[in-house]
Each structure stands twice: as C-alpha cells, then as structure tokens.
C-alpha cells in the first residue's frame, strides 16, 4: 500500500512540487494550503507522515497544528519545513514535538531521505542477526562481511558504514546522515571526504562483483539497492 503523506504548505508551487515528486516516488500525497483545514485533515484521517510548513497564513501556524495533534495523542511522524534555519528555531520545532526539521530551500532527495528515515523509525524495530542484500551478507555478531560467499576484509568503521547503508537499503542516505550515523558527528562534511570513504567501500564491495550495490544519488547522497 502506498505511503499516505499529508503536505500542509501554503505556497502552491512548493506544495505542488513536493506532492508531484512524492507521487512520482509512489506515495499518495495530499496537499492542503491552510492551517485550520490542515489540522482537520491531519487529525481526521490516518496518515503515515505529515509534512508541515511552519509559517501558515491565518491564525493556525505549523507549531500550533503540531501541538494540537500531539495533545490529541496523535503520534504520526511530522516533518517540519521552514525557512527559519537557526539552531534555536530547530530546537523550538523539536521541542514542540516534530520528528524532523528541514530548512527551505531543500533538495527533494533530502526531504525524501528524511521521510524514509521517519517511516523506518515508526516501523517496528527489528534486531537482525545478519543483514542481506543480493549476495552480500553482513554478520552483525561477528562483524564480518561476505559477498558471493567470499569474505571481504573491512575495517571496523567500513563495516559500520556498510551496515548503516544496508540497513537503509532502497533509501537515500545523505552525507550528513552518514557522518552522524557512522562517525557520530554533526557538522557539514566537505563533500570529498565522505565520497572517498564510499569509494573505498565500493572498491571492496562492488569492484569484483555484479550487480553494483552502492549507488550515488546526485545532489543528495547514496543509496544501497540491487537496481539503479
């Protein structure tokens, strides 16, 4: 079943763009241009994820919608979109109960990556003993990887990087997400540095095997998947 997205955004162009790209990606996206109607929709129907603009015309802005939803015990993942970019604004958003905060302007791939991360988070967390994609196998206990039954020697950090990507197979992972998830640092990595790490990993995972598993998504980051 398609992922149901509610987009509460007053700028028609942006709303149409987000919904268009989401529908292209196989979601069922509905857009709504004002706060009151948005709250009614958000509270009245089941959604998988809500994309909420912070500044909306009329009395009901994004944060009050968010508060109203959380007050009613609705825990649907909410991603707040805003042109207010400072750390403080971000913190205010997160404190009010949003699950992620993305500043405008943004690349759609970034939005998509974050939505996927939210959906995954709200899905049941499973503890795997091993991860698999195509003929690549990661043993999470012994921290060993093999492809086509041939062991691949990986540094501990390389294993973590691969694990992070494979856990999110089929999803876009940005460089910032990688730096945070694998290295545990939150800053803007210079593009080159993550790319070099990925290309190292590619050398070991994809060079002597087919099909290639690690794909570069232009303008966004990387994705591990069987097909392009």
């Amino acid at each position: 079943m398609a992922v149901r997205c509610l987009v509460i955004e007053d700028e028609d162009d942006t709303a149409a763009y987000i919904c268009g790209r989401l529908n292209e990606a196989g979601c069922a996206a509905v857009s709504c241009g004002n706060g009151v109607e948005g709250l009614r929709l958000a509270a009245g129907e089941p959604w998988d994820v809500i994309i909420l603009d912070r500044m909306l015309p009329g009395g009901t802005d994004g944060l009050s919608i968010l508060n109203a939803l959380r007050d009613r015990g609705i825990a649907t993942p909410v991603l707040v979109l805003s042109a207010l970019a400072s750390i403080d604004e971000r913190v205010i958003g997160l404190r009010n109960g949003c699950d992620d905060y993305l500043t405008k302007p943004f690349a759609f791939e970034e939005l998509q990556a974050r939505i996927e991360a939210l959906l995954r988070r709200s899905a049941q967390k499973q503890d795997f003993a091993e991860l698999r994609i195509a003929d690549l196998r990661l043993d999470l206990q012994t921290r060993k990887a093999e492809r086509a039954n041939r062991p691949i020697a990986l540094q501990p950090r390389e294993f973590r990087l691969l694990e992070y990507l494979v856990r999110r197979q089929g999803q876009i992972v940005t460089r910032t997400m990688l730096l945070e998830g694998v290295w545990d640092y939150r800053f803007d990595p210079q593009t080159g540095v993550i790319d070099v790490q990925i290309s190292r990993l590619r050398q070991k995972i994809d060079k002597d095997f087919a099909p290639p598993l690690i794909h570069t998504i232009r303008g966004a980051g990387y994705m591990v998947s069987v097909n392009e």
Partner: peptide, 26 residues
Amino acid sequence: SVAGIDDLIAIFEKLLQISEAEAGAR
C-alpha cells in the same frame, strides 16, 4: 543550474553557521 543553486544554498547555510557562531548563543 540545480547543482549551482545547491552550491548557493550550501553557501547560505555556511554563512548562517558563521553568524550563529558569532552570535554566541550556543
């Protein structure tokens, strides 16, 4: 052009980080 705009956005992001650091709130 999209790549060029992304670069511009990255520049704005960095400028914002600089001014945020200079404001000292953190």
